[in-house]
Simulated assay, not measured.
Amino acid sequence: MSARDRLVALLAEPPADRGGPWLDLVEGRPGSRGRLQDAWESTTGAGGYDGVLGIGDRVEAYVPDLLGGSLLRSFYRVDERLGLAGGETVLDLACGPGTLTRRLARAVGRRGLVIGADLSEPMLERAARSTPFAQVDFARMDAMDLPLRDATVDALSCSLCLHLVPDLATSLAEITRVLRPGGSAAFAVPAHAPGPLRAFSEVLAQVGQARFFGPGDLASTLRRRGFSEVRERSLGGIRVVDAVAPV
């Protein structure tokens, strides 16, 4: 069975069109979700984001721990944070150009399935071109209205997505719903600057019409939703949070 067939089998409703390098599973055309999200919806923005992520992907193995290498690796090695052993079904929510998707694909192997999901069509086009794995398929999805059935994925990667959604509670409810009980989740979100510099990061968030997270913000929210084994680490301007879905 192809990755496309396996993905379709997990959907709440069959797609209208099963052709193309990725499925469009978004109802209608969502309006603007802020300046930063609008940038990722453009070809130029997607290309710039791809370039930045690509640099980190190439150098993370060589950066010494004293220069933040261990924290950099914790962002990119999401497959290790999820504890993937092979054969799992993984949702890479906000997959962007597919940088982390490819790592996840190697980890789950041919028996597994990785679903790369993003709202940006230019991002999905880049991801589909650069991810030649039979166990991967891509789909355009809205993080606040995931088209998957309940408890359909074993693990979920959600890197640099939650700061862009208009309603954080709705997105986390959807993430909890599609994860199987006890499934692993790995998040990465932009962080507010510490101390007096926070005012500067708040301005950046307002300009980009995005949400930044303070220490413990996401971790405490996940705990209130029943997630366990919640662990948060700071990676400069990014907070990395891992958790286990409610049982």
Rank of each mutant, 00 (worst) to 15 (best):
V8P: 05
E13A: 13
L25V: 03
L25T: 00
L25M: 03
G34A: 09
A39R: 15
S42Q: 14
T44H: 14
G45T: 06
G47R: 08
I55L: 14
E60T: 03
G69E: 07
S70T: 09
S70W: 11
E80H: 12
R81Q: 14
R81N: 09
R81Y: 12
L82E: 07
G83C: 14
G83E: 15
L84W: 06
D92C: 08
A94E: 05
A105W: 04
R106V: 12
A107F: 05
G109M: 11
R110F: 10
R111K: 15
S120D: 06
M123E: 11
R126C: 03
P132E: 15
D142S: 06
M144Q: 15
L148V: 03
D154G: 07
L156E: 00
C158W: 01
D167F: 00
D167I: 00
D167P: 04
I175N: 05
S184T: 11
L197N: 04
R198H: 11
S201P: 00
A205I: 09
Q209E: 15
R211I: 03
D217G: 09
R223C: 14
G226F: 06
S228N: 12
R231C: 13
R231Y: 12
E232I: 08
E232Y: 00
G236Y: 10
R239S: 11
V240P: 02
A245K: 01
